[in-house]
């Protein structure tokens, strides 16, 4: 039997959880609601909390106009740059941790790259990309996002790799693995939780980038963040298109985080060493 004070504490806890959940979920709900509302409902006052009818017309427009391709562009640039950054950053982190590459301060120096406000380097990078003819190309954006994410990945993975017991790797070396095989068969599975967590954040960074996508794209590889802002006109603002496009941008993120979440569990290394 639950005692009364315990019952009240449970109710209080649930109430807090509910408030926090509403706080976080409401904006997403509102976005989704607007994207299926009629224009009258969007501008209605008092606001229409629950749309009367479901209209998919704004989504339909995005696909028939070809604007939805911008989500694909985001997916390609964010996906490939995340993969590249993860590979380069993890190998760099392993090297820093196990071989003391660059001494004690290289890791700090690398992460300091992330301390520069992006806007400070936006102009030089634009000029550089113009001269390399990489403006408005996949390659340009992918390279840029990779460059920005490698320091982050290196820093994060350094922490996760440091937690792996050295003896596990040494045991594998004696058992007949090469260094690369150790990285693949011991370090990767041991740092799996960290690997996924880092990848998710790296992907989010590239996915959400607006500044560089704005200045480095024109028409070919416009990402969805840039596309969305294009619907704010001086004459009219297409709220239904904005919200529909935003939904297209949010859904992959929800999918990514949702599927990755089960990998991001701690405690996987339990029982590796000692008791």
């Amino acid at each position: 039997m639950i005692r009364w004070d315990k019952g009240w504490r449970l109710i209080l806890r649930l109430a807090c959880a509910l408030i926090v959940t509403i706080l976080f979920v409401f904006p997403v709900y509102w976005l989704a609601a607007i994207s299926i509302k009629t224009p009258e409902e969007i501008y209605a006052y008092p606001p229409v909390w629950i749309p009367g009818q479901v209209h998919f017309s704004s989504y339909l427009t995005l696909f028939t106009d070809g604007d939805a391709w911008s989500v694909w562009n985001s997916l390609v640039t964010a996906g490939i740059s995340t993969t590249l950054a993860m590979v380069i950053g993890t190998i760099a982190a392993y090297s820093i941790v196990r071989f003391r590459t660059g001494g004690d301060h290289l890791a700090i120096w690398i992460i300091s790259q992330r301390m520069i406000p992006p806007i400070c380097v936006a102009f030089p990078i634009f000029l550089l990309f113009v001269s390399w003819q990489m403006v408005d190309t996949y390659l340009g954006l992918i390279l840029l996002y990779t460059a920005f994410n490698v320091p982050y990945v290196t820093w994060m993975m350094r922490g996760y790799i440091q937690e792996i017991p050295l003896e596990l790797e040494q045991c594998a070396l004696v058992d007949g693995l090469t260094r690369w095989a150790v990285l693949w068969k011991v370090v990767m599975p041991m740092a799996r939780a960290g690997l996924f967590a880092t990848a998710v954040f790296t992907f989010i960074f590239a996915w959400n980038d607006f500044l560089f996508a704005l200045i480095l794209t024109k028409s070919e590889v416009v990402t969805y963040t840039v596309k969305v802002t294009g619907y704010f006109g001086s004459q009219a603002t297409f709220w239904s298109k904005i919200s529909a496009m935003s939904m297209l941008g949010v859904l992959p993120m929800i999918f990514v985080v949702g599927t990755m979440q089960r990998f991001i569990v701690r405690g996987i290394s339990l029982g590796a060493v000692k008791g």
Binding site: E167, C171, V174, G271
Partner: peptide, 17 residues
């Protein structure tokens, strides 16, 4: 790996996964 030696470590060093 080229020495053909087997080793048992103090901390067991078992792969938890």
């Amino acid at each position: 790996r080229d020495r053909n030696i087997a080793m048992v470590f103090q901390s067991y060093a078992l792969y938890p996964y």
